[in-house]
Write a protein that binds this DNA or RNA. Structure first.
Lengths: 206, 206
DNA sequence: TAGATTGTTAATCGATTAACAATC
DNA sequence: TAGATTGTTAATCGATTAACAATC
């Protein structure tokens, strides 16, 4: 069973399953069912069982899923049984919020570098990180073996920075710039553009 | 042709089309084709034509689409021929970044209120906005007729704030809290959770 | 006219759901 | 055992693509 066999859309739902399981665990729950998990997430029980069955058999007939066990399995599947170092590119408001965000660590990620191109920001601290000159970005990322970057620069610089990131070996980019990045097939991109999300909802208003 | 007839997945692509068209326009282009637009966005020309045909006939055989005209049509369809007032809930790093974000205005939205629950923040300024006490949130939102909110509070308060927002008449929520909100069918929610996006990509790493 | 591109239909492809035997 | 729930198959549903007549 190779990566190619599993539809993207199935992989895309696993983080939601994991997030709900982690929350149940926090609430002290030990066991759940596809029924219960589905109700919490607004998806069908059948879909959850079908999705999970792509990767193995994680439940027991009659009783459901052990939450701890299923969480661990999902973390392994998603390569979250390690902590991924990340670089933030852009020390504006978004970069700043990302650098301070405390929610990454227990979900498999941590920020270890932040870059900017403005003299006033370079050398300053954001949380525990020193803002570095983007001129050294490619070298530093490559030297540190960083594979994941969050891109929070203005749209008109996003593509050139992306090209540098890819050259430096980055394989996953969380893109906050409101622009469609062009990347080779071997690089994953996820986009976060609040205005796009808002526009999806405004259709249904009025 | 009612809202129900158009699949969500089609509506979800319209903002991307609009964003690309606006960019083309900035670059001085006057006309485009489903071919060209598709290439820019990484979707098929047939899909673009099919999606647009759900709403009307906007092109001309042989020549393609007038960018200005198609943009205007898409804006009308998405109810973006007006500016939607928005409230930000939570004046932490995310709320702060949203309040300062300059990209909303020319995409149909503007922030007019921000709320928090901490005494130190209430009364302070963020950009041009005064931070207000969340205790008055429901009343102020209702009085102003605000229909769109961006939720940037910790996960453990997100649901209770949501309930208040809905009571106050909010119909669209952009949710930054890493939790599945429960809302009535008449309310739209879009979620932005960077960790979820990162986890979707880590599956393909290694 | 010749070339290009739309809007639409029918065919294909893929995803979701329903149902149930297996079994805890 | 009786009740519950899994994993999986087959049926259904929906979305995408290919193809082409219409026409600018």
């Amino acid at each position: 069973m190779t990566k190619q066999d599993i539809p993207d859309i199935v992989v895309g739902r696993l983080p939601f399953y994991l997030r709900s399981l982690q929350r149940m665990q926090q609430e002290g729950q030990q066991v759940t069912s596809s029924q219960e998990l589905g109700a919490r997430l607004g998806v069908s029980a059948a879909q959850i069982r079908k999705d999970l069955s792509q990767f193995g058999e994680f439940g027991k007939q009659g009783t459901g899923y052990n939450i701890q066990f299923l969480s661990n399995q999902l973390r392994k599947i998603l390569n979250l049984d390690q902590v991924w170092d990340m670089a933030i590119i852009g020390a504006g408001d978004v970069g700043n919020a990302l650098a301070h965000y405390s929610g990454f660590r227990n979900r498999g990620f941590q920020c270890t570098m932040i870059f900017d191109n403005t003299a006033e920001k370079i050398g300053g601290m954001i949380g525990t990180l020193v803002v570095k000159d983007v001129a050294y970005m490619a070298d530093e990322i490559q030297a540190a073996g960083i594979k994941v970057a969050m891109l929070a620069v203005p749209a008109d610089h996003a593509q050139e920075v992306t090209d540098l990131l890819i050259e430096a070996g980055v394989k996953a980019i969380l893109n906050y710039a409101p622009i469609q990045l062009s990347v080779p097939e071997s690089v994953r991109v996820e986009n976060i553009d609040p205005a796009t999300h808002l526009q999806r909802m405004s259709y249904y208003l009025k």
